[in-house]
Computed example of a mutant assay.
Amino acid sequence: MHGWLTRLRRALQPPARIADADWDALVASSALFARLDAADRLALRALAEWFLARKSFSAAGGHVLEPSHALAIAALACLPVLRLGHGALAGWREVIVYPGEFRVKREHHDEHSGVVTEGEDVLIGEAWERGPLILSWADVATDLAHPFDGFNVVAHEIAHKLDLLDGAMNGVPALPRSIARREWIEAMQAGYDRLVRAAERGRDTFIDPYATESADEYFAVVSELHFSDPAGLARAEPAVAALLARYYGGETA
């Protein structure tokens, strides 16, 4: 009961205001924020305040988590929901930050042989269903310093969180009424299929071939590009780029 009351009080308590100096330092630190207009920066600041009040941050792997790190991650996590609202970030409460790449143990089940093998993946980000958002600070910092180079680990993982809102990680997030589910699936599937064919033929592709892993990874990778190289994405996959602009609410670069 005590834990429930604590959570209720936190939910009802207005978020603490981000200090002007801290916010100004963040905006000045990356062209990703500086390129936003005044109205969007104000909305992003309010969302980041909400995020910091509702999500808990913890360090792992020996990382020293600075308040500026939490603020930067909060702003990056809220950028994809600038038009969707903080309700799109519901259902989970924790952010775990490593200093750099981290290892995760996996089990792989071969459907044909039935053999189960164990291994480790080296990751820079991960999003668990109703669980934490896990990030490499080194990669977050690189994305802040070079925001338009085609990579954004926080946007990638938040895309997975958005994908999970309807209960299934399948590359189809909960969609606004302005986008029909069939329209989304047709455009994304066509883009995914083109990428798979190009990768199978050994062609160089603008979209990272990692996106061929699954439909959900394709959505996460093209979401990264929407925030970090929308012009490049529009050249490579105009229909996908246009759909993401409608979903996220426009280009940021």
Rank of each mutant, 00 (worst) to 15 (best):
Y192D: 00
L82F: 11
R54S: 13
P230I: 05
L244N: 02
V221I: 13
W50S: 12
V104N: 06
P14S: 05
Y247M: 07
I179S: 11
I207Q: 04
R45G: 09
K105S: 11
D40K: 14
S58W: 08
R17I: 09
R45D: 05
A239G: 05
A75H: 05
A159P: 07
A88P: 01
A245S: 12
L42W: 08
R41E: 14
P67E: 10
T252I: 11
A48M: 06
P209M: 03
G125P: 01
F219G: 00
S136Q: 02
E126K: 13
A19D: 15
P209I: 00
R130Q: 14
A159E: 02
T142C: 04
L47K: 11
R201I: 04
H226D: 01
E111C: 07
A53H: 12
Y248E: 06
D163N: 08
H109E: 14
L12H: 11
R54M: 14
A43R: 15
R235N: 14
L26F: 06
R197S: 07
E217A: 03
K55V: 08
G250R: 03
L165R: 15
T6S: 10
A39S: 15
A48W: 01
T205L: 08
G249S: 13
L144M: 04
A168P: 00
R106Y: 13
D149S: 06
R130L: 09
V172Q: 10
L175K: 12
F33A: 10
L133W: 09
A90R: 13
G191E: 01
I185G: 05
E129D: 09
I134S: 08
I207V: 14
A16C: 04
G191W: 00
H146L: 15
A215W: 01
R9N: 10
L42Q: 12
S178W: 07
G191K: 01
H2W: 06
P14R: 13
R177E: 15
R7E: 13
D229P: 00
L52H: 03
E126D: 12
D40G: 08
G100V: 14
V196D: 01
H69S: 04
S178R: 15
F33W: 02
R203I: 02
F148K: 01
G202D: 10
A211S: 13
R181D: 10
D37S: 15
L233P: 00
G125S: 05
F206L: 08
R17T: 12
K161W: 02
R106L: 11
L12A: 11
D40Y: 09
A253R: 11
P238I: 15
A234R: 15
E118R: 12
W184G: 15
R17W: 02
L52S: 02
Y247T: 02
G87Y: 03
L133F: 12
A72F: 04
V115C: 07
